[in-house]
C-alpha cells in the first residue's frame, strides 16, 4: 500500500451527558449546567477512524474542530490526548441558538479558511439534536462527495473507500478526495488517552477562532440564521400498560382480544 500524507479534519461536538439532561420548561432549551459534558459518542468514533488512517499513513495530519461555547475546549483537548495534531474552537456569542443550517455553514466557513483537506469526518448524529444533518450539510456547502453511516473507511491508490450500513445491506463506495464521511457509533472502539499525551495536549493548547476569523455575517449564523424554530415541547408520557393476565387455558380469549382490539389482523398483506 502506498503511504500518503493526508490532511484530515474531524468535526466534534460537546454534548451534555444524555443520562443527565434537564430541559428548561419555559425556554425548551437544555439546562446544560445540570449535566456533565462529554464528547458526542459518535464523534469519538469519528476521531478513532481518523486515527486509524493515521496509524497506516503516519504522515497524516489531523485537526479537530468544534463550534461551541468556550468550555467545549475540553472535548478538543481530549481528542488531542488520543493523538490528534491540532484543535480549533470556533466560538462566538453570535453562534448561539443555531439549527443545522447555520451550524453547517459556520463549520464549512471554518474549513474553507483552514485550506486544503482530503477527508472530513463527522459523527453519524449528535445525541442532543440527533439529526445527522450537519455532516452532509457541510459537504453540500463545500461541494464535496459524501458517505454517511459508515462502519469503516480506508484509503487505497488515492481513492477513499467507505462501507455504509443501510437498512437492507452493506454498500461499499469509492470516492475521490476531498470528501466527507460520517461514522457510526458501533464502527470501532475508541482508544484511551494516555496521561503523557494529556499533558502534551495541554501544553500544545488549542486555537480559538471567532466569527470575524471566518468571514460570515452575523445575521447568517446562530438563531438569526436558522430557518427552523422550536415552537413547543411536551413530555411524552410513557404508555401505561395494563398488564392484563390470561391463564394458560384462556388462549382462545387472548387471541380474540388481540383481534378485536385490532392489534393483530390475520391474513393482511
Amino acid at each position: 500500500m502506498i503511504e500518503m500524507a493526508l490532511e484530515i479534519i474531524v468535526m466534534i461536538k460537546q454534548v451534555p451527558d444524555s443520562s443527565e439532561v434537564v430541559i428548561d420548561p419555559v425556554t425548551f432549551t437544555l439546562n446544560r449546567g445540570a449535566a456533565r459534558n462529554v464528547i458526542n459518542p459518535a464523534d469519538e468514533n469519528a476521531v478513532e477512524q481518523a486515527l486509524r488512517i493515521k496509524d497506516k499513513n503516519p504522515d497524516t495530519h489531523i485537526t479537530v474542530i468544534t463550534m461551541g461555547p468556550p468550555f467545549a475546549e475540553t472535548a478538543l483537548l481530549d481528542s488531542m490526548a488520543r493523538g490528534v495534531d491540532r484543535a480549533i474552537l470556533v466560538t462566538d456569542r453570535a453562534f448561539a441558538g443555531a439549527d443545522t443550517y447555520p451550524t453547517g455553514l459556520t463549520l464549512a466557513a471554518t474549513i474553507t479558511k483552514m485550506g486544503k483537506f482530503d477527508i472530513i469526518y463527522a459523527g453519524e448524529e449528535s445525541t442532543d439534536s440527533s439529526t445527522g444533518h450537519v455532516g452532509p450539510g457541510v459537504a453540500e456547502f463545500l461541494g464535496n462527495e459524501q458517505a454517511s453511516y459508515t462502519s469503516n473507511s480506508w484509503v487505497e491508490d488515492g481513492f477513499v473507500f467507505a462501507e455504509r450500513q443501510l437498512e437492507d445491506g452493506v454498500e461499499t463506495v469509492k470516492m475521490e478526495p476531498p470528501c466527507l464521511i460520517t461514522v457510526l457509533t458501533n464502527a470501532n472502539i475508541p482508544r484511551e488517552a494516555t496521561l503523557r499525551m494529556k499533558i502534551d495536549s495541554i501544553k500544545k493548547g488549542i486555537e480559538t477562532w471567532t466569527l470575524a476569523d471566518i468571514g460570515l455575517k452575523p445575521e447568517w449564523v446562530g438563531l438569526k440564521g436558522s430557518p427552523t424554530i422550536v415552537k413547543s415541547m411536551r413530555t411524552i408520557n410513557e404508555k401505561k400498560r395494563e398488564g392484563k393476565k390470561f391463564g394458560v387455558d384462556e388462549m382462545d380469549k387472548f387471541v380474540d382480544e388481540l383481534i378485536s382490539k385490532g392489534i393483530l389482523n390475520l391474513g393482511d398483506e
Partner: peptide, 20 residues
C-alpha cells in the same frame, strides 16, 4: 439512512430548514 443523507443536502441547497 439514504433518506437522511439526501434530505440534509437538499435542505442546504434549497436554503431551507428540515426537521429530522
Amino acid at each position: 439512512r439514504n433518506g437522511r443523507d439526501l434530505a440534509s443536502r437538499i435542505a442546504v441547497r434549497s436554503r431551507t430548514g428540515v426537521t429530522a
